[in-house]
Amino acid sequence: MKAPTFQLTHVTRACDYLVVGISDNAPLDLKIRLSSHGLTPGSVVKLVRKGRWTPLLIEVRGGLLAISGQEAEHIQVSSPH
């Protein structure tokens, strides 16, 4: 089974802003948990810490949010044009 995915896609050159993508097969309660923190498909968030040794740290709607594990595993790094 594929893990439920929550994707962040880079949009700017500096790579510090990301667009949130949530895969369709993500379970409902994950979607609800994410959305109650302001993470909905298409919303733009700021990347604060990349999250290799620590959880991922992003700025969402003016506040800091730490995400780790599955939720953050599927970050797509598209090379900026």
Partner: peptide, 10 residues
Amino acid sequence: ARNLLMELPS
């Protein structure tokens, strides 16, 4: 463990 989804206060 459940994955972390936590707000950090100012």
